[in-house]
């Protein structure tokens, strides 16, 4: 449905923020994208909706329903946005106009894109509010963003994203700003919507727990590379790439309470300091001589694929 071939995003300074990513999303698929700050996960998502910030250079191919769209072909993207794919963001307050009633926020695109009249748009907005589980939906339509809680605001944005029945919903850290209980309900809602509507979901997060309960497939990113992919449950239980292994081990676990946590040495490197071969070189416990200079091949693993010179079971 949407596919990226060899997608590369460069900054104005020529630093590579996303390096040759290949990714395809099937109808109804729930795909998680996991990575730390600077992993390129948000840029990957933005390139799928034609919204890579100005000044960044995008190379490679983006296919939407079989049609190749150039990164700067704004007219083609506008044809697909909201209808083929829609996106929600981390901070729901920032994405809502504080001076517009939330009901109007959702009804407006319905009139604009679908040509509904005022009453029909309002009826449809109400349906969407109910579908996204906003309590007292009828009353909420007339309220302003500041009168809603954080979780309700995120639901409003989800309703807005669903307005034109997109085939793909991209959610960029949608639960990061929310409290745990609310976050649980939002991820439940996203899963339910995806199933009910046969809508694909791309769920971007640094939170392994949230990704694991929301998605079926997973892509792990580090330093602009997709380093591992496969079924979520299988990758998280038996990771092959040393970064995925390190990330899972470093995460404090409720069960295995060792006195010290295994760590990944060093820090996430800045874009300009990335090693030319494997991006994880220098922090990797299983580093080989060729890792620094040679980009690792993508190889099959028991749980999917990994880009590594020496994939396999780690010591962790």
């Amino acid at each position: 449905m949407i596919a990226l071939h060899n997608l590369t995003v460069r900054t104005t300074g020529g630093h590579v923020a996303v390096r040759g990513a290949d990714l395809a999303i099937q109808p109804g698929q729930r795909l998680g994208v996991v990575g730390e700050s600077g992993s390129g996960k948000t840029l990957l998502a933005l390139s799928m909706i034609g919204m890579v910030p100005e000044g960044l250079q995008v190379d490679g191919q983006v296919l939407v329903k079989g049609e190749t769209i150039a990164a700067d072909d704004e007219r083609a993207w506008r044809r697909h946005r909201a209808r083929t794919m829609a996106m929600i963001f981390q901070e729901p307050m920032a994405a809502l106009n504080p001076l517009v009633r939330v009901g109007d926020t959702v009804a407006e695109p319905l009139r604009l894109h679908l040509g509904l009249d005022r009453a029909a748009a309002r009826k449809r907005a109400l349906d969407l509010f109910e579908e996204t589980g906003i309590p007292q939906a009828r009353r909420r339509l007339g309220q302003y963003p500041h009168e809603l809680s954080g979780g309700q605001r995120q639901r409003v944005l989800i309703a807005l994203a669903l307005a034109c029945d997109p085939d793909l919903l991209i959610a960029d850290e949608p639960t990061t700003a929310l409290d745990a209980q609310v976050a649980l309900r939002i991820t439940d809602l996203l899963v339910r919507l995806s199933q009910d509507r046969q809508m694909a979901l791309m769920f971007i997060s640094h939170d392994l727990a949230a990704v694991s309960r929301t998605t079926h497939d997973i892509v792990v990113m580090y330093g602009g590379d997709i380093v591992e992919r496969g079924q979520t449950v299988r990758v998280l239980s038996d990771p092959a790439h040393p970064y995925t292994q390190g990330l899972l081990a470093a995460r404090p676990s409720l069960m295995h309470r060792e006195r010290r946590l295994p760590t990944i040495p060093g820090t996430v490197p800045q874009l300009f300091a990335l090693p030319p071969g494997c991006r994880f070189a220098g922090r990797c416990a299983r580093e080989l001589p060729q890792c620094v200079g040679t980009r690792p091949p993508v190889v099959a693993t028991p749980t999917g694929q990994a880009a590594c010179h020496l994939p396999g079971a780690g010591q962790t």
Binding site: A180, Q181, A183, L184, L208, A209, A210, S212, R213, T232, V233, R234, L236, S237, L248, R251, S253, L254, M255, H256
Partner: peptide, 25 residues
Amino acid sequence: VLGAPKHDYTRALLAAARVGGVASP
């Protein structure tokens, strides 16, 4: 507290922190 959470809220916190298939208590 982790072994026998008495409160729904604590159970929600536990659920939110759990990575499926890895550390399922």
